[in-house]
């Protein structure tokens, strides 16, 4: 797996810290799990492209915004403090759908 950051391809390993607007790409036998500071947990299966488009979290008020886009592949989501504090602050997009999240666990597959 690797990250795309500002057009650059960056190798990633366990413990690598992500930045908002990174894209996570997994290969045919890859997978990746990401723990966000608001306790949202995202993980992707093989052949997946997940773009973190926006991530903002105020650790005092728990207000924030979390938008990600599954361009391809499979995604599992456990929402965290952002979605708990503000319904609709968390959104997951695919090329053909937009998901509004109200505190929950769910799965998304986007296939061509």
């Amino acid at each position: 797996m690797y990250l795309e950051r500002s057009g650059q391809r960056i190798p990633a390993r366990v413990g690598t810290h992500l930045q908002a607007t990174d894209t996570v790409v997994t290969g045919a036998d890859g997978s990746a799990g990401i723990a966000f500071v608001d306790n949202s947990l995202l993980s992707v299966g093989p052949n997946s492209v997940l773009a973190i488009e926006r991530y903002a979290f105020n650790s005092t008020t728990h207000e924030g915004a979390f938008e990600s886009s599954l361009r391809r592949g499979t995604l599992s989501v456990v929402s965290g403090k952002i979605a708990k504090q503000s319904p609709d602050a968390m959104k997951v997009k695919t090329p053909s759908s937009i998901l509004g999240v109200r505190g929950t666990e769910f799965l998304v597959r986007s296939s061509d």
């Binding site: 695919t94 053909s96 929950t104 799965l107």
Partner: peptide
């Protein structure tokens, strides 16, 4: 459009 499957757990 992509064909999506979304499942609530």
């Amino acid at each position: 459009p992509s064909q999506d499957l979304i499942v609530l757990l």
